[in-house]
Design a protein around this nucleic acid. Structure first.
Lengths: 202, 202
DNA sequence: AAAGATAGTAATTAAATACTCACTTTACTC
DNA sequence: GAGTAAAGTGAGTATTTAATTACTATCTTT
């Protein structure tokens, strides 16, 4: 049985669609991803997409849900079983970088959704994802403070902004270099500086 | 005499066009800025734009040139007359944040151009701008190392990535909050962490 | 195997968009 | 003030895009 036979049950077809969009976003500007392009990549006619999604925004929303689920669960797994909060933060950072290296289109889509002026469902999903991300970071920061690893007077919000911005900076560099592996190579160096910035003076 | 009479000399009209695009980018997704929208905002018909620009990319290119010039000169001014490299970095950081607060559309346009798959003139301008930015930072890092303010074994590239990413993170937060002033308020706190990360241990 | 439901096709539509062009208006020069 | 060049108008065009629809192919269930 071929992975993608002609007829797929709705649930599977939606999955394939989402994965296709993620793949396409890694190759081109997300705002240029048309329903025709998605369909073509799947070996489907454009109209067929609308059997499974009410409109294009529903596709993007499904993608953002997929991203939120996968990313957050990967981060949680990375944090799990790390003894110290600082080690957990590093593990989380690298897990995020790995995730993006595998799916380079994702940060672009996220940023693209956030800039939308209209209040689309996809945009709301992106906002929710980042809010939950920030909350998770806050918990780790608090733990780090109580166990003495982090600077007691560290500003949580600023530290979270910097954490996410650090990743965003790596994404930008890799966009300029046109090379995804660039990101993974430099991530540890960049995190080292970040760590130095938040941890308590010894 | 009104600032914008009906007929403007070509040079002025181009200037007004660029400023209009920058303004629009602060209000909506840059990829949704159409020539019709630009013209409408200027109180002009759409066709008139093409008297002054050969095509849309030429408009975007002019915008990127405007940005590069203004931003780099502001950064240079901020660095100037600062005695220490670290003080210069902080001044540069705040100048950049101020610039973006005044023109919130600019980071979005930059990022948007960088994601383009085609090699447009505007995209090349954006890449050049960031390259020159990085070079300027490198000079300051080197100065900081020789005068002992910065950690001697600091990785310049990583520090530059983090510097720019830090700003990108602030932009992202303000996008989520839907509030530009958010950025300026948090900038000092975020820079404080960054500074702690790069300076030499005392 | 028949019947009903599900998934896909191919052609079409309406709206949006970058760009063009023949013509008109405005501003400057002698 | 006439003549001219520059700047703007308004009505186009070709193309792209999301969404619709009448029809067909394929699965599933009894």
């Amino acid at each position: 049985m071929s992975v993608s036979s002609k007829h797929l049950p709705a649930e599977e077809r939606r999955m394939v669609t989402v994965e296709t969009v993620v793949k396409l976003a890694g190759e081109q500007n997300p705002s240029e991803i048309t329903t025709a392009a998605i369909a073509k990549r799947m070996g489907l006619t454009q109209g067929a997409l609308f059997r499974h999604f009410t409109n294009k925004d529903a596709i993007l929303q499904a993608v953002m849900e997929w991203v939120a689920e996968r990313l957050l669960s990967r981060l949680e797994k990375a944090v799990h079983a790390k003894s110290s909060p600082l080690a957990a933060l590093e593990s989380m950072f690298m897990a995020h970088v790995d995730f993006i290296t595998e799916h380079p289109g994702i940060p672009r889509m996220l940023f693209g959704e956030l800039q939308r002026s209209e209040e689309t469902a996809a945009k709301r999903m992106a906002q929710t994802l980042l809010r939950r991300y920030g909350e998770r970071l806050n918990r780790l920061f608090e733990q780090g403070k109580t166990c003495g690893e982090l600077d007691r007077k560290l500003d949580n919000e600023a530290a979270a902004t910097l954490f996410i911005g650090t990743i965003q900076g790596l994404v930008m560099q890799s966009l300029i270099a046109g090379d995804v592996s660039h990101m993974r190579r430099n991530a540890p160096k960049v995190f080292a500086i970040y760590q130095q910035g938040i941890r308590s003076a010894l």
